[in-house]
């Protein structure tokens, strides 16, 4: 009996010490939890380039939780994240309007591409995005083509829905047609699926290039021009009045991401491996109003606010230490 009591006390003591030690370790590390989109994550930009440099510089570990934009926003609403990195302007705006997000900054852009099998049964190569979708729908209804949709509430999915709308289709209706397949998963898995089925899909350039380069897929980028395809990535901080997160740390990250060093790392990532960068730094384009990208970004990535276009409307700005791009509406 005595031995048993000693054993129980010892185990409990080890347990308490262990838990205490774990909390101690956790308190030793300064951590920012960033909920992010899979398209940023799956390329490796965040873990391989941004996190190590940022840690070296500020001693803060960046924990990226890859989810679709929709799920990433949900994560933030549950008080998990210190910031979110996403690419769906309408959802971002809603997130801020609900009072969860503040101080939105854009930090990178690239382009969506419509990819498909090399023999291109719908004949979309070189068309504008809207015409291409029309053709695909037509071919699909004739049984000649398949379209794969992520249908996961992600930024890419949000863009896809908007593109279908521009082409004159109601996403919620065509979704039920037989040539239209939903995967409900991330970009990588969806590309793999489209590859297997010899189908068309919308992808972000970063993930597509990586998969293509590594020989995982055999799909061609058939439509990659057109302002509608621009893809603007933004980071949004969590409103400190909503959740007590590491607002200061997240601010450090935003400022670093949009300063010279951060922008350079974004622009150089993947250059060697893929022949061209997966993401383009956005700050110089805005500062110097480089056309045509400036207008496209203004149209698809910035937000209207009282006759101006800006990264972050004034009512969603918190504190005074951050600056935001503002332009006259053209």
């Amino acid at each position: 009996m005595k031995r048993l009591a000693i054993a129980i006390v010892t185990v409990l003591a080890i347990l308490v010490l262990g838990v205490g030690y774990q909390y101690h370790i956790q308190s030793q590390h300064r951590v920012l939890t960033i909920s992010t989109t899979t398209s940023l994550y799956d390329t490796g930009l965040l873990e391989e380039a941004i996190a190590p440099t940022f840690k070296e510089k500020y001693g803060i570990e960046l924990h990226f939780i890859p989810k679709g934009t929709g799920a990433a926003i949900q994560d933030a609403k549950n008080g998990v994240s210190d910031a979110i990195m996403v690419h769906a302007r309408s959802k971002e705006l809603k997130f801020m309007e609900e009072g969860y997000g503040v101080n939105r900054k854009v930090f990178a852009y690239n382009f969506f591409v419509i990819v498909g099998p090399r023999d291109d049964p719908a004949g979309i190569k070189g068309l504008t995005p809207v015409d291409a979708l029309k053709k695909i729908a037509q071919a699909g209804r004739e049984g000649k083509a398949i379209w794969v949709s992520r249908d996961d509430g992600s930024g890419t999915n949000t863009k896809e829905i908007a593109l279908w709308k521009m082409a004159g289709f109601d996403y919620s209706k065509i979704k039920n047609e037989s040539w239209f397949v939903s995967t409900g998963t991330g970009m990588g898995a969806t590309l793999n699926y489209a590859n297997t089925k010899k189908a068309y899909t919308l992808s972000d350039t970063g993930t597509y290039l990586k998969f293509r380069k590594e020989g995982l897929i055999d799909l061609d980028a058939l439509v990659d021009k057109g302002e509608e395809l621009i893809n603007v990535y933004a980071i949004i901080l969590i409103n400190p009045e909503k959740f007590d997160k590491d607002f200061e740390g997240a601010k450090l990250l935003v400022n670093w991401l949009t300063n010279e060093e951060g922008q350079r790392i974004i622009g150089e990532f993947g250059k060697n491996r893929f022949g061209k960068p997966l993401f383009y730094p956005i700050v110089d384009v805005l500062r110097e109003k480089k056309e045509p990208y400036f207008s496209w970004i203004a149209k698809y990535g910035l937000i209207e606010d009282d006759g101006e276009v800006t990264e972050c409307p004034e009512k969603f700005r918190y504190g005074k230490e951050m600056t935001f791009f503002e332009f006259e509406k053209q």
Partner: peptide, 24 residues
């Protein structure tokens, strides 16, 4: 979660398997 050299990683075998499958 995986940060090279990080002290608070949470990646385990099953989660990395699903991640690598997703990445193809």
């Amino acid at each position: 979660i995986f940060v090279r050299g990080g002290g608070l990683n949470t990646r385990v075998l099953t989660t990395s398997i699903q991640m690598y499958v997703a990445r193809g």
